[in-house]
Amino acid sequence: MIQHSTFLFISGTEIMFILFIVVMVFGADKVPDIARGLGKGMKEIKNATNDIKSEITKTASKSGLDTSVTKDVQDQLKQVKDDLEDFTGSVRRKM
């Protein structure tokens, strides 16, 4: 049985087709610039969300709000995610 790797439910063939279309539309010389711009944009979004999270946490702790509730929710979400990964992993292997 051959298992194909997928990324966001997209197979390798589909990724290659998308890359081919990108090269055809933008040209090979523009692809690195586009990828660099996307990388910088993703980094800025990640930094902005981290800044917002830290500001909210600081404000909550200064106001005397209990922030342990969010940690409990995050732990529960992590547990559900792990359980889901275990389930989908077994389903994926059987396909």
Rank of each mutant, 00 (worst) to 15 (best):
K53D: 06
I10Y: 03
V23K: 15
G64P: 02
L84S: 11
T49D: 12
I21G: 12
T13K: 14
V25Q: 10
G12F: 01
L65Q: 09
K53M: 12
T59C: 05
M42A: 12
F7V: 10
F20C: 03
L84V: 07
F87P: 01
G39W: 00
Q79D: 08
G64R: 04
D51W: 06
K53W: 11
T57R: 15
A48Y: 08
R36H: 06
G64I: 14
V25K: 11
T70D: 00
I18P: 01
V91Q: 15
I10H: 06
F9Q: 14
M42R: 13
S90E: 14
L84H: 08
D75R: 12
V69C: 14
G64W: 12
D86E: 09
D33G: 08
V23Y: 04
V25M: 09
K81G: 02
P32R: 06
T49G: 07
L19P: 01
F9C: 05
K78C: 03
S61Q: 15
I45N: 02
N50E: 04
K81L: 10
T57H: 09
E55W: 11
T67N: 13
V31W: 00
D72V: 11
S68M: 07
K40H: 07
V80P: 00
G12I: 01
D86I: 07
K30I: 10
I18M: 08
T59E: 08
F26L: 15
T88H: 12
E44P: 00
I10S: 03
V25H: 06
D82V: 04
D86Q: 13
V80G: 02
F87W: 03
N47M: 10
S90I: 03
S11P: 02
S5M: 03
V22E: 01
A28D: 11
H4L: 06
G64K: 15
D75A: 07
E85C: 10
I52A: 15
F9W: 08
K71I: 09
T88Y: 13
D51F: 13
K78P: 02
D72H: 12
T67H: 09
P32E: 00
E14M: 07
T49E: 10
E14F: 02
F26W: 05
G41T: 06
K40Y: 05
F20G: 13
F20V: 00
E44G: 02
A35S: 09
K30P: 07
I34T: 10
